[in-house]
């Protein structure tokens, strides 16, 4: 039985993404630790996935025909948690307990703690393999549901990612859509300095993937790419979502020092006040 997602307009999705960003900033400042840049950079992708692309039912997280989602880059889970709460998987007030003792929201994703989370991930490279395992089993059982997995670009340094890429290419996992958060930063600096990834598109294409480059802040483009992935029948699809780390908060944008730290209360207040409207294309940094 397919469930109908409510259809949101692009304008509504932009607003949802902005609400998610605000919640992410509040969560991080309350938690006192966590990853700011990737979480903010992926808000548009998460809003699009959960409010337009995924076939899911927040009131029934274990619905067996749901599309599966695995966050391989477990450290950006503030944006996932904020999106899950916004979708109705759990009350929004839970967000303020992120990373705290007794919270539903562990520092990294854990299936037994959080409604809507199917696996545990965090050590990089692990989630993508689990997503491919789900996709393989889905094809084995002739299921219609699809699997989506978000990974970071720094995460692609892990060997396990390429083992999975080879496996998915070999087995033509057409129901698997990977999304790379291509924000060009990782903890020690810019990805091309730490461990160059280019030509990233060429790498996945040579592993027998269908690869799409999209502007990760252009909601229409993200929807189009996900639809195209559904139409490609002989390959898995990798969407390289070009994002600005820290998107929306001008003093965080493109600065790798924000990869693994939260804003302090003054910075958060400043960020919330200045959170820019985020329609359209990637903006050139104007700071």
């Amino acid at each position: 039985m397919a469930r109908q997602q409510k259809k949101y307009t692009e304008k509504q999705l932009i607003k949802i993404a902005n609400d998610i960003r605000k919640d992410v900033i509040k969560m991080l400042v309350k938690a006192g630790s966590g990853h700011s840049a990737g979480s903010l950079g992926m808000a548009d992708v998460f809003a699009t996935l959960y409010f337009s692309v995924l076939n899911h039912d927040p009131k029934n997280p274990e619905w067996k025909d749901r599309d599966r989602f695995v966050l391989s880059a477990g450290h950006i889970n503030p944006v996932w948690y904020a999106t899950l709460a916004k979708s109705g998987y759990f009350p929004r007030k839970e967000l303020w307990s992120l990373r705290k003792f007794g919270s539903l929201l562990q520092g990294h994703p854990h299936n037994e703690s959080t409604p809507g989370v199917d696996t545990s991930s965090g050590p990089l490279g692990h989630g993508f393999a689990q997503a491919a395992g789900m996709a393989y089993a889905g094809i084995m059982d002739n299921k219609k549901w699809r699997v989506y997995s978000v990974m970071g670009d720094g995460e692609l340094n892990e060997g396990n990612i390429w083992e999975t890429a080879m496996f998915a290419g070999k087995n033509k996992l057409r129901n698997l859509t990977g999304i790379i958060d291509r924000n060009n930063i990782q903890i020690d600096g810019f990805t091309e300095d730490v461990m160059p990834l280019e030509s990233l598109k060429g790498k996945f294409e040579s592993f027998n993937w269908h690869v799409l480059d999209v502007d990760g802040h252009n909601i229409e483009a993200i929807i189009d790419a996900c639809n195209q992935a559904k139409a490609v029948f002989e390959k898995p699809t990798m969407i390289i979502a070009h994002t600005i780390p820290g998107k929306g908060v001008h003093f965080m944008e493109r600065d790798f020092k924000w990869h693994g730290i939260p804003p302090n209360p003054e910075e958060a207040e400043h960020a919330l006040r200045h959170l820019r409207s985020l329609g359209g294309k990637i903006e050139c940094g104007d700071h």
Binding site: G125, H126, Q130, A132, G133, M134, M140, E163, M166
Partner: peptide, 25 residues
Amino acid sequence: PDRFVEVGVAEQNMAGLAAGMALGA
């Protein structure tokens, strides 16, 4: 044969794939 999966020489991937097959399906 349809329930056998050849993973190649990739033990990390094998463990992850298996976890996904169990948890997701």
